[in-house]
Design a protein around this nucleic acid. Sequence first.
RNA 1: GGGGUUGUAGCUCAGAUGGUUAGAGUGCCUCGUUGACAUCGAGGAGGUCACAGAUUCGAGUUCUGUCAGCCCCACCA
Length: 881
Amino acid sequence: MDNISKTYEPQQFEKEIYAAWERDKNFHTTPEKSGEAYCIVIPPPNVTGQLHMGHALDETLQDILIRYHRMKGDNTLWMPGTDHAGIATQAKVEEQLRGEGTNRYELGREKFLERVWQWKETYGNRISYQLRTLGSSCDWERERFTMDKGCSAAVRKVFVQLYNEGLIYRGTRITNWCPKCNTALSDIEVEHETEAGHLWHIRYPFKDGSGYVEVATTRPETMLGDTGVAVHPDDERYKNLVGKTLILPLVNREIPLFADSYVDKNFGTGAVKVTPAHDPNDFEMGLRHNLEQVKVINNEGKMIDAGKYTGLDRYACREQIVKDLEAGGFLVKIENHEHAVGHCHRCHTTIEPLISDQWFVKMETLAKPAIEAVKSGELQFVPERFTKIYINWLENIRDWCISRQLWWGHQIPAWYCDDCGEMTVSETDIDECPHCHGKNLRREEDVLDTWFSSALWPFSTLGYPEETPELKKFYPTSVLVTGYDIIFFWVVRMVMMGLKFRGEVPFRKVFIHGLVRDEFGRKMSKSLGNGVDPVEVIDKYGADSLRFMLITGNTPGNDLRFYWAKVEFARNFANKIWNASRFLLMNLEGFDKNFKPTRADFELADKWIIHRLDERIGSVTKNIDRFELGEAARLLYDFIWLEFCDYYIELTKARLYGSDMRAKSTALFVLMTVLESSLRLLHPFMPFLTEIIRQKLPNAEGSIMLAPYPTRDELKDLLPEEDNIEEIAAMISGTVRTIRNLKSELGIDSRKKSAVVLKVTKPNHKKIFQENAGYITALAFAEPITFAEEKPAHAMSGVIEGAEIYLPLEGLIDTEKEIARLKKELEKLRKAAASTAGKLNNERFLSKAPAQVVQSERDKLSAAEEKISSLEQRINQLENL
RNA sequence: GGGGUUGUAGCUCAGAUGGUUAGAGUGCCUCGUUGACAUCGAGGAGGUCACAGAUUCGAGUUCUGUCAGCCCCACCA
């Protein structure tokens, strides 16, 4: 074979193969195609993003499922696309503008958006191309974008309907505000972290001069916006004081002392300063007690309407306030205090709760069916434990703030009329107020949270709001593959929207995976600089190795660590397959693809490997079906490397190099059959390697990705008639291993031919040993085997099921060492036998355990006893030498 | 404050519905390999399955508790 290189070099063929697949439209499907629908919609990567390990894992899992189902004959669609990622993308372009010395306000909304679209055109396809390098078999002709025409239409329709049903409302609420991103955030976009802070104790004097109340706060600057102080109604300390008026220090505002059961008597001083404009709880209390909302911090985190503090940054103000309080004698003490502080999930700036006008989705009515769908089993999580997390979150859900003060995104389709003051929400753009026919309309400037359009992704990509054939055929989709980190952001919202607008769950199953961490178990992140670039891994080792590495040694839902050593392990596997294939291709001389051996042509090894392949087809398929891809990969690894390469191929060499042409043809037939089937079994995991090798095989044609996935049915005619082939093979390989071990124990070169005497202890096994004596001698480097009824006088012996094996002792051995070893082994055996015997004396065991188990215990015991007596004899023998 | 999850060989990890002597890769030790592959082969050492109870004829596997680590959720100023 001149056209197959000595080592596996994925760089030589991966790109080319992918291009051919795409050119031949192997990824494409239509609703009309035959087969059961199997569909996955991709978790759309950020349009400006770059491939990272998380994607690589996510894509690999999906591609394995997709390729497997496609080969199985399902009508398989993998729907690709990207997400506009509001804040992230806008931030990138703003950064670019900063570099040019300008900003979005100078540019204006329209020009700015042009720039973002330009950015999207330039960088938006990068991620799609990077996905290709992984081998992802997406139907690229259908690629979508969350802000394309169809998705925008879906967003509009859904928004308007939800609004008309009262499920979307606009309101003045306290929301999480990021002063850096300059926008409101939803609750889940806030990350709480414990920080070491302080608790400032401050005196608020009574107006009538009758003393003071001491309050405690972690954010003293907010006192400028205080409009009350609250205590618990049952708190004896304050019972008589409730209703009195306090003077807010530094500001000299008169504020009431009131009672509210929200207050925890045991925390701090039991008195809470109340700042309705800057704290969610205070906001609620403010509503209950009709307090004024005084806003003292603006959108940029600077003080406003705050007298001499106006214009100060919130933290500078805090320092100043503390100084002033101290100077005024209001500050009692400062305690160290750990508390959870909210940070922006994107830029990590400390969140400032602020009052503003925002849009919200009412979640309760949407959440109920989403909970029900999981409880009824209509939607299943793999692994199951995530159901609990999902349900728990939905049962405690709060309304979803969907408006963002950004420009990049789906602009909310609401118009305010300056003439009559009415607001209109409309699916199509309007230029006249439907209430007063006025023309002075202003469109709502806010855009929607990115996750709003993502929530519609499973049906918007399939054609919604049109009732397309795709939607009919592929919705609900089969499975959603994603990390546990976005269950709340994305999965729950898709389920809610799918149920609401399609009346059905968007996917039957959610396959959750973990995070890819670095070698120390840390999250890969930009700030730590510990990320490994999958593109680099692919360049060095090939996509197949990266894929295989990400799959093996991992179970659903659990994090995995990235090690270069693991990539090498995968690459070695690829190289092993490569070389095994190369070996077969080099020995194809005389191969006739039309030759079909009969069962009589098969030798033990042939029967055995076919039997093993049959078993692996079953176990691999079963494990893919239950999403245990790591286990499936391991099964393939063991089968191909250990059983096929190390064992079976070695066994066929005698025939390949021999002169019996029929025997050679039979061996080649089995070799090529098993190789070809193994490649198909492995294809979903290592698509490139399996494709290029299979193309070189004379017994295969067409692209492997369109070939059928192996089934046990395929092997029906080849499977051995013996049902104990495994046992026979174990006997033979056991014999070989024993001979090798004996040699090794004696310090004899394993390649040196040795005489072997075999005493068959189970007469019905004699034929098997005789028939396979050739293998044994070849594999164990033995002289032709002598069958005997008696053991030789001085020999090293080993026992296997059904036979005793003797190596006549010639030359020197270390007798003492041998005796010690045997004694140790004897001890072990005696212990095991005693425990088995004990079990067999146990009446409860005898009466309760199934007959099979009891029998196997008995067999075990008698086998152990046999071994013990033979060991004892050998020790005796050696001691007498 | 709730909830989840992990603890198995030096290291990284498998061990579904409880059932022989608990596995793999890697590392270590021995030996071998000039024709498929040193990105290799044949062996070996190495484990009280975190700890303590419970259920069972039988527990790495089920249950309870303890310890240790990780994660998520949560409006205690």
